[in-house]
Simulated scan of single mutants.
Amino acid sequence: MVAGVALGVAGVMGLHRVIPNSPGRVGSLVESFLPWGGGVVVLLFVVALVRRSGVALVALLLPVGVWVQGFGGLLLPGAGAESGARELVVVQHNVSDENPDPAGTARALLVAGGDLVALEEVVTPALAVYEDVLRGDYPHHVVHGTVGLWSKYPIREDQLVDIRPQGFEAGWSRGLRAVVATPYGDVAAYVAHLPSVRVGARGLASSSRDESARMLGDLIRREEEQAVILMGDLNSTVDDRGLEPLTSQLNVAERGFAFSYPAALPVARIDQVLARSGRVSHMRTLPATDSDHLPVAARVTLDPLPPSGRPAP
């Protein structure tokens, strides 16, 4: 029995894309918790030892191999910055629109020393608090709707981006684009907060999030700046096919699980940093604030410029 379950777990982890998404978006639901397949393998290993089942232990080699292939790299420690690396430190945090201590949250984020700080669920009067506390380290910032970007470097242009799914009220505004003049060239920085999902008797309710992800993916596909960094609460993990419009064209974190939600007992990383013309070399969580999300910090290493000084196509 243990051997059969082990083969089944290996199949789910390795062939999750063939799991149908209808009804109830079962495929997306499974993909949201794929890393925890490793926990199931550990439990099966304990059972196999107790039963002294050699067959089960051999069978467990398959799911172990699948898990290591898919997630083992995330366990490796992040390397230090390379000499001359074109690296930016990015901080991402859904600060919660019910945060009782926005000043304390802002001060906690300063400790990470990010070059860019992206915030979601920024509402009044908390916005004025974030602006006041972050102003000294981040003289440049833009806010559109409930999302904002704070930067150490000048922001050349900014605009609201429309990622509002059909049927959402007109005041729903959760996306922005800014062009940041970094020491390594201009970078198109996107901040987004995709619609929430719910898990119920009918499965995963994620159609609005998926629609918003498709809209954002279309915008990024048409982005003229070569270097792109997307920061946001995407309400999904990078394994979820619902984010494929984004993960198919942007690089995801190479190191670090950085589970960010819920803050009290994090089981998934739904706060993301993705990049084009650059690697997200490492992600980590930061100490908890008064939000229901943990903040995350990422190192983004931008691709080198060619001799012409323009990003490579």
Rank of each mutant, 00 (worst) to 15 (best):
Glu157Phe: 12
Leu204Asp: 05
Ala189Tyr: 11
Ala103Cys: 00
Arg177Ser: 08
Met231Phe: 12
Thr105Gln: 01
Ile229Tyr: 03
Ser96Val: 09
Arg198Ile: 14
His93Ser: 00
Arg198Cys: 12
Val180Thr: 02
Ala170Glu: 15
Ala178Ile: 09
Ala205Asn: 15
Val129Gln: 00
Glu131Cys: 06
Leu110Phe: 09
Arg174Gln: 08
Gly217Gln: 13
Trp172Gln: 00
Val161Arg: 05
Gly175Glu: 01
His193Glu: 01
Leu109Gln: 07
Leu234Pro: 08
Asn99His: 13
Glu157Ser: 15
Asp97Asn: 15
Tyr190Leu: 05
Leu219His: 11
Gly136Asp: 00
Gln166Met: 13
Gln159Thr: 14
Leu110Ala: 02
His144Phe: 13
His141Asp: 13
Ala170Lys: 15
Asp137Cys: 01
Pro100Tyr: 05
Glu225Thr: 13
Gly145Pro: 04
Val123Gly: 00
Val191Arg: 01
Leu127Asp: 11
Ser196Met: 14
Ala108Cys: 03
Arg198Tyr: 13
Ala189Trp: 10
Glu157Arg: 10
Leu119Tyr: 06
Pro195Ser: 05
Asp132Cys: 05
Val228Trp: 04
Phe168Gln: 04
Gly113His: 06
Glu98Cys: 13
Val122Gly: 05
Asp162Lys: 09
Glu225Asp: 14
Arg198Met: 12
Leu109Thr: 02
Trp172Pro: 11
Ser196Lys: 15
Asp137His: 08
Val143Lys: 09
Asp233Phe: 08
Leu149Ala: 00
Thr124Ile: 14
His193Phe: 06
Leu230Asp: 00
Trp150Ile: 10
Glu211Gln: 02
Pro102Phe: 06
Ala170Met: 15
Gly203Glu: 08
Met215Ile: 12
Tyr184Ile: 01
His93Ile: 04
His193Asn: 00
Asp137Asn: 02
Arg156Ile: 12
Val191Ser: 01
Asp186Ala: 12
Ser206Asp: 15
Arg209Thr: 10
Gly114Ala: 05
Leu116Phe: 06
Leu194Glu: 06
Val228Ser: 07
Pro100Lys: 02
Leu109Val: 12
Ala192Phe: 03
Val95Ser: 02
Arg202Asp: 15
Leu204His: 01
Ala192Ser: 13
Gly185Ser: 00
Glu98Leu: 15
Ser196Glu: 14
Gly104Asn: 05
Val111Thr: 10
Thr146Cys: 04
Glu224Gly: 13
Pro100Gly: 02
Val143Gly: 03
Ala170His: 15
Ala189Glu: 12
Ala181Arg: 10
Leu230Gln: 01
His140Cys: 04
Gly167Cys: 01
Gly114Tyr: 06
Pro139Lys: 09
Val143Leu: 09
His141Ala: 15
Ala108Thr: 10
Arg222Cys: 12
Asp158Cys: 01
Val191Asp: 07
Arg214Asp: 11
Pro139Glu: 09
Gly203Gln: 07
Asp218Gln: 13
Val133Cys: 05
Ser206His: 02
Asp218Val: 11
Glu169Asp: 14
Leu116Val: 10
Leu119Trp: 07
Ala118Phe: 00
Gly114Asp: 10
Glu131Trp: 07
